[in-house]
Amino acid sequence: MNEFRAMTHPRTNSRRRVTTGSRLPVASPARRNRPRLHLIRWVGLGLFGFWVLVAIFGPMLAPHPMSAFVSDEIYGGASTANLLGTDYMGRDMLSRILTGARYTVGLAIIAALLSSLIGAGFGMLTVLLPRWIEECIRRVFDTLISIPSKMMALVMVSAFGTSIPLLILAAVLSYAPGAFRIAHSMATNLATLEYVQVARTRGEGKLYIAAFEIMPNMIQSVLTDMGMRFVFIVLLLSGMSFLGLGVQPPAADLGSLVRENIGGLSQGALAVIAPALAIGTLTIGANLLIDSLSTSRGSQKE
């Protein structure tokens, strides 16, 4: 079920494929070892890095306060005064995007970190816990994973009203189970390996085994998975904001910026295209970066 959430099919780079892949030489060693131009990776890193920098420094660089009315023209086009035009109330779009990016990137990073911490933490610990506790925890996560993330967010917002902690909670409830599933299956495999048995025989405690024997061997995969979750959470949260059920005014993330300016779409206003493109470049960049990192790690093992 988790395949649905993973952007690339998880089996693409599975260990099985890497080790039992074609044994025919695909290219001469010299050609195979030629340093490759990681164009996709650099494009991904560039886009993603750009938005992270914007999230950190954007509000300081914004030429106007985010809610200042700077122009009489609504849905204004690009000009020297307003580089990205003006929004539906004549506010500077560039400043609003620079400020809004912090919400989009920041909330998603917090939620992705929490999802991975909770998911991977439980995934690792359950392997060491008694069998019946493991089963119970698995059942809970399996149930949560069967609720599509947008449904979870919509149901929670309908019950409690929207707020930033609630949005983070909804994202974590939706995406921690997937992280759990991946971490759990990895930890189950790792727990059977000899060095873990040795540590157990040596009389090490469970926490020690989890932290020093199992975790170092799965941390890379957990981080890749976290990147993937980041992309999904950006899409989820900006989707919710786009529906008007996410970040509420006066604060605005990139999704809310698209929503509030959607009226300008029929005149092709920059105010609606710019934030939509901003989200697109952020998620595409992150996805390209993660994919190229995980693929190259897979091919190193070959």
Binding site: V231, L235, S238, G239, I262, G268, L277, T283, I284, L288
Partner: peptide
């Protein structure tokens, strides 16, 4: 690969906005 990798990460409303802009406005 590049196209599909980018497309899976695109939010629906970006595609929708660009489609409206192209086919309905322009």
């Amino acid at each position: 690969n590049l196209v599909t990798l980018s497309m899976v990460a695109v939010p629906e409303f970006l595609v929708a906005t660009l489609a409206v802009l192209l086919f309905a406005v322009k």
